[in-house]
Design a protein around this nucleic acid. Structure first.
Length: 905
RNA sequence: GGGUUGUUAGCUCAGUUGGCUAGAGCGUCUCGUUUACACCGAGAAGGUCGGGGGUUCGAGCCCCUCACAACCCACCA
């Protein structure tokens, strides 16, 4: 016996993954490179049947977190589903050099060893981090395997692979030639700790309490009071601005004021930026250290005086303040202002402050020369394609959100002062001699610090690319898209990633895809939300509520994790997650395992051969001995389906019914997958497998053993569940005696053939059995099922299914009612059935019966009220009206029978 | 200030164009160890679908409005 009594995922998962990988079944059947079979120089591949997804690359030297777990569950379910559907699926795995993240870790290590980055040059640092990453690498890839990701490992792309860098340089060169790249001295968000600039999108704004100080700037015959949260920057002030409409200051515009603590006069200018309602209505302008002031400065051509250095100390200030940190300087300035009697008060306020998203340090707006991408053209092209609905979004509203973002996009700072990344391929001219040579030239030889072109020397810019600049090429580089060849895997079928990086990544992939290839990079976008903890709180180390996916995989199995994390989750929503849903998944896997175990043992017992499949299978000995006639549903021919590997026929209504239910289930799974409703697909599979297949069909098969159908239906539900629970379904498939190959590469099942009339009749049996069970439990006393037998009047459904009803209800006997009715009549409209209970019990049941009559009466009243409404009868669809009429009839007949029963008591 | 989403059972969530008595998992309660499964089986309790108004024969779903919650963008001298 291969099937143990419970499914232990740990015993199977790694072997199964190993077997899949060894058989190379995850490589796409349609080649990923051009193929010319007939030598006509043309690519002979077609893309009718391809399905491609690129994995958002997890950090190469990190561990997977819960979000990765969700990503893989979603992507791999899609991939496996489409593989079963017969597509040539290509799931391309990736690994991210994670520029900034990895750099932070590496630099921390350096510091621990008592070194700093400044001891090494850029090339040395790059080589050192490369080795560091190489040492750490591998865990993440093992974890992807543990999650069951059926990706094509040979095609793994690392974000620093040569082809990636090549492609990035090609794009950059094209942009440079197209005039979309410029070097600008602009204010950037600068982290004094990490010594690098960030893009706007990487900045984390937090509300903080601060102080607003009022300072007097004097002029001949008066003073103007400005409010500031940053008094230390006053040495960088280039003007004081007032609103042109502000009557209070109209006469002062154009005059100069004395800059406190500095021997300097600055002008009073008129600018809309000054809000008359705020503070005194006058504001100091520091173009080099404030984003708004920078813009004011541009409008008025003001001097940009840099008073804070990149390591956060004061420069270009009077001797006294030089070299102080900003905090020290602020203290000193305030003290000196008070001493000079220029301090005019202070108040507390809450304002948002920019922080480094990694270390939390307050970011300093810093004047720097950086490379910028002019995004106007990129964004407008992207907007055009988005507005033409070339990409379908899940959830749909994100399309609008994205367009809105692109409409307000500012130029993109792509320079980062971090050694770990792709070097910017730009070189600056060093010779002083006056020359016509350009200041900057593009060159791919970034491994060199210095190059010579046409006798002129150039040195490389030390900076590296913002990682989003290179990752915006991800669909292009992973699929090996080229200008020259048709690529059946590009655009991708779907891009799946977190909703939190819609702007940072998805937007940029779309812009870059269009710029480089002229096509949108993917046809659909599925965005998942954050995985929150069980109480709906964001997971964080500091809260201690982080759930590690690998712990859950180890504890409950990979399938249980996948089922659990997809359950109850819909696109774009931040949703809670708890171990309970994983436990439910584990239980389903075990249930399925035991279903297979039961069927395999049935198959083993039957000694079945193909020849006797079409004959009616053996009933149990008990049934044969009984005098009950064979099961019939009144029809002469049975449905026989030979289109399956194991031909089967349906022989009774339970069998027809389960075929119908499985077909419904397949339809619902198919439509759910089309609409990315994974939770719904899992839900319907769960219900079908557990509540229908196991609880009704398999129970009924304890009497009728139709091995052909058992095999066929089991294969069907296994394949249907495989996309979500790949391991347990494969483990079962490998253990079954009659299956071949891998379930992972099986064919998605055809619909089962069945007799619909017979299938519907089984529902009558379900309601009979349910009513018997419910009534037995409601009766006083315990173990009622063993005590009371069932009596039936003129009822063919019951008469034809005595054995089955007995098995399902556990009643000791079912007898034909001879003569006077006795016992308790069951509340079934279309069946004459009695539980053979003593008068005393019936009497005790009186209250319940009365309540039942009342509740049916209430239902009847509601239905009657509906029919009394002429508008309903006239306007509602006919079938609904007819349905209501039928229901009224049924309820009326039921209520009269129950009343008769009550009268008898 | 602009935008997005949400509010349905004790908890976490479904509920597709309006249409039978609003569903599931987990939890709770009762009963049951019957040879696939106690990671089980049978049964049950639990909901004025955030409040108010409107449209409709009919609203959890559509419209208006209010409240509360979460998130994003911008601004914050």
């Amino acid at each position: 016996m291969k099937f143990a009594s419970s499914y232990e995922p740990g015993e199977y998962e790694s072997d199964i993954y190993g077997a899949w990988e060894a058989s190379d079944i995850f490589a796409p059947p349609v080649p990923t490179v051009p193929v010319d079979n007939n030598g006509d120089g043309k690519d002979d591949r077609d893309n009718k049947n391809t399905y491609s997804i690129v994995m958002p690359p997890p950090n190469a030297n990190g561990n997977l977190h819960i979000g990765h777990g969700l990503t893989i569950a979603v992507e791999d379910s899609l991939i496996r589903y489409h593989r079963l559907k017969g597509n040539s699926t290509w799931y391309i795995p990736g690994a991210d050099h994670a520029g900034f993240e990895t750099w932070v870790v590496y630099e921390r290590n350096l510091e621990k060893q008592g070194h700093t980055r400044f001891e090494y040059d850029r090339n040395e640092l790059y080589a050192r981090v490369w080795d560091f990453v190489a040492e750490q690498r591998g865990n993440m890839e093992l974890q992807l395997r543990a999650l069951g990701a059926s990706c094509s490992w040979d095609d793994l792309t690392f974000t620093l692979d040569e082809n990636v860098i090549d492609r990035v340089y090609t794009t950059f060169e094209k942009m440079w030639n197209d005039g979309m790249i410029y070097r600008g001295e602009k204010l950037v968000n600068f982290c004094p700790k990490h010594q690098t600039a960030f893009a706007d999108i990487e900045v984390e704004h937090k509300d903080e309490k601060g102080t607003l100080w009022d300072i007097a700037y004097t002029y001949d015959g008066g003073e103007i009071i400005v409010s500031t949260t940053r008094p230390e920057t006053l040495f960088g002030d280039a003007a004081v601005a007032v609103n042109p409409e502000d009557e209070r200051y109209k006469d002062l515009i154009g005059k100069t004021v004395h800059l406190p603590l500095a021997n300097k006069e600055i002008p009073i200018i008129a600018d809309e930026h000054a809000d008359p309602e705020y503070g005194t209505g006058a504001v100091k302008i520091t173009p080099a250290h404030d984003f708004d002031d920078f813009e004011v400065g541009e409008r008025h051509n003001l001097e940009r005086i840099k008073v804070i250095s990149e390591n956060g100390t004061m420069i270009n200030v009077p001797e006294k303040y030089y070299g102080l940190t900003t905090a020290e300087c602020r203290k000193q300035v305030l003290k000196d202002l008070k001493a000079a009697d220029l301090f005019r008060g202070e108040k507390q306020l809450v304002h948002s402050v920019a922080h480094c998203y990694k270390c939390g340090t307050v970011l300093e707006p810093m004047l720097k020369e950086q490379w910028f991408v002019d995004v106007e053209k990129l964004a407008s092209v992207a907007i055009k394609h988005l507005e033409q609905n070339e990409i379908k979004f899940h959830p749909a509203n994100k399309q609008k959100v994205l367009i809105n973002y692109l409409k307000n996009l500012k130029d993109w700072n792509i320079s980062r002062q971090i050694p770990w990344g792709i070097a910017i391929p730009m070189f600056r001219r060093v010779t002083d001699a006056a020359t016509d040579e350009p200041d900057w030239i593009f060159d791919r030889r970034t491994h060199l610090k210095e190059i010579e072109v046409g006798g002129t020397k150039y040195v490389r810019d030390e900076d590296t690319f913002d990682t989003w600049f290179s990752s915006s090429h991800w669909p292009i580089v992973c699929t090996d898209w080229t200008e020259d060849n048709f690529n059946p895997y590009y655009p991708l079928n779907v891009m799946e990633t977190g909703a939190d990086i819609l702007f940072a990544w998805v937007a940029r992939m779309i812009m870059m895809g269009l710029y480089v290839t002229g096509e949108v990079p993917f046809k659909e976008v599925y965005l998942h939300g954050l995985v929150l903890d069980a109480h709906g709180q964001k997971m964080s180390k500091s809260k201690g509520n982080v759930i590690n996916p690998m712990d859950l995989v180890a504890k409950y199995g990979s399938d249980a994790f996948r089922l659990g994390i997809l359950r109850g989750r819909s696109a774009g929503m931040n949703q809670a997650f708890s171990e309970n849903s994983v436990i439910a998944g584990r239980n389903l896997c075990n249930k399925l395992w035991n279903i297979a175990r039961l069927i395999q043992s049935t198959v083993d017992d039957s000694n079945e051969t193909l020849e006797n499949v079409h004959q009616r299978p053996c009933a149990t000995n008990e049934e044969r001995r009984s005098e009950v006639p064979p099961v019939t549903t009144g029809r002469n021919e049975r449905v026989v389906d030979e289109s399956f590997s194991t031909p089967y026929s349906t022989l009774n209504m339970g069998e027809d019914w389960i075929c119908r239910e499985i077909n419904d289930c397949l339809n619902q799974v198919e439509s759910s997958m089309k609409n990315y409703r994974f939770a719904e697909a899992i839900e319907v599979l769960y219900q079908t497998i557990w509540d229908k297949y196991a609880d009704w069909f398999l129970e009924s098969q304890k009497i009728f053993k139709n091995t052909g159908l058992l095999k066929q239906t089991l294969e069907t539900i296994l394949i249907a569940l495989h996309p979500f629970a790949p391991f347990v379904t494969e483990a079962i498939w490998q253990n079954l005696s009659w299956t071949d190959g891998f379930i992972a590469t099986a064919k998605w099942p055809n619909k089962l053939k069945f007799d619909p009339i017979s299938a519907a009749e089984f529902e009558g049996l379900i309601s009979v059995v349910s009513e018997v069970r419910g009534t037995l439990q409601a009766l006083p006393g315990t173990n009622n099922a063993k005590k009371y037998s069932l009596l039936y009047g003129n009822d063919s459904l019951v008469e034809d299914n005595l054995m089955l009803i007995r098995t399902l209800t556990k009643v000791p006997a079912i007898n034909s009612l001879d003569g006077q009715p006795r016992g308790l009549r069951l509340a079934l409209a279309n069946h004459e059935l009695y539980l053979d209970v003593p008068e005393k019990v019936v009497t005790e049941y009186k209250d319940a019966l009365t309540e039942k009559i009342l509740s049916v009466g209430r239902e009847l009243d509601a239905l009657n009220a509906r029919m009394m409404n002429p508008n309903y009868v006239n306007k509602a669809p006919e079938h609904l009206v007819k349905e209501t009429k039928d229901q009224i009839k049924e309820k009326e007949s039921l209520i009269s029978r129950l009343k008769t029963q009550l009268d008898l008591i």
